[in-house]
Amino acid sequence: MTENRTITLVVADDQTTVREALAVMLDLAEDVTVVATATNGAEAVEAAERHHPDVLLMDLNMPVMGGVEATGRIHGAEPHTTVLVLTTFDDDESILAALHAGASGYLTKDADRTTILHAVRAAAQGQTVLAPEVQRRLLALTARPAPVAPPRDEGFNLTAREREILALIGEGLRNPEIAAQLVISEATVKTHINNMFAKAGFHSRADAVRYALRTQRSAQDPQ
């Protein structure tokens, strides 16, 4: 977009007060027009397809469809729309999953109006904006030696269900979302994850996310 054109924006957040406050606050800027709001990821995808906004401000933890899955769908279907994450989560798992899905920026909800508005403008210009704490986490992840992946045919001897859950973890889904998608109980999900962690030697979900992403890349680019 050119610097003189108004930035069209969609705000997606399941909390009514947050969503409405963001929409009003950002719409007051002379160069920003909020064209729609969404209460969940499915509505965010629909709004992106209908309005083709320059930027979509995306929460992560939403019902019906989470922000990570919605980001991936929008990134694939509406490549001209830049997804900017605004969430309460700054853990490794959420950051990696959102960026892997195609988010171009990542802010936490303690950001002030000036920071959010600057990020929206930067995102509309194709720039990446990361909150300072997110930058620190990414640098730490880069510096941390990644566990060596075993041969793909060995795969820690995971069961088919464990592999399925590992893939969903790599997509950024949390235990309740995994349980809903696989139509099993959350307790069963936790049992599979505990077994998986014991077999693979994972110490955190971030370890599982990194391994899942590496496995996906290996599958897409076989040697």
Rank of each mutant, 00 (worst) to 15 (best):
A167W: 07
A123E: 02
L60Y: 13
V45K: 00
R73I: 08
S94I: 12
E20A: 10
R217Q: 14
D221H: 04
A111I: 09
S94F: 01
M1R: 15
Q220H: 01
A122H: 03
L26I: 04
H75Y: 08
M25W: 06
H192A: 15
S185W: 09
A44Q: 07
E69I: 04
A198K: 06
L22R: 00
E164C: 14
R161I: 13
T82M: 09
R121V: 08
R19G: 05
K190P: 10
A98E: 02
E69Y: 06
A122Y: 05
A167L: 08
A23Y: 12
T37H: 14
V45E: 11
F197D: 09
L99T: 11
S104W: 03
L107F: 13
D91H: 05
R163P: 13
A179T: 09
E162Q: 15
G102E: 06
A149M: 13
L86Q: 07
A219P: 14
P150S: 05
F156A: 10
L141I: 09
A149F: 15
A198H: 09
L60N: 05
P79Y: 14
V18N: 05
G72V: 03
G172I: 07
D59V: 06
A206W: 04
A21I: 11
T82I: 10
N157C: 06
V10H: 09
A77F: 11
E177V: 13
E171L: 05
H100T: 10
H75N: 03
R50Y: 14
A187W: 04
L117K: 06
S94A: 14
A146Y: 15
S104M: 02
P147E: 14
M1V: 15
M62N: 01
T2P: 12
A103M: 01
V129F: 00
E93N: 04
S104P: 05
L182A: 10
V32T: 13
V64H: 12
T142D: 14
I178Q: 00
V32Y: 11
L26R: 02
L57Y: 01
I193C: 15
R113W: 10
A119H: 04
L158Q: 13
H203Q: 14
G67I: 00
G76Q: 07
A179F: 10
R214N: 10
A23F: 03
A48W: 00
R214W: 15
E154Q: 02
N175I: 10
H80K: 03
A149E: 15
T108R: 07
T71G: 03
D221N: 02
E46G: 10
E69K: 15
T6Q: 07
Q216W: 08
Q15M: 09
A143D: 07
H80P: 03
L9Q: 08
V209W: 00
H52F: 06
D59P: 11
A160P: 15
Q181V: 11
T39C: 08
P132N: 12
V24R: 03
T37L: 15
I74C: 01
L86F: 15
D59L: 03
V183C: 04
T114S: 07
V64D: 13
L84I: 06
V83K: 00
L173S: 06
V134G: 00
A187E: 05
A36H: 08
V32M: 13
V134S: 02
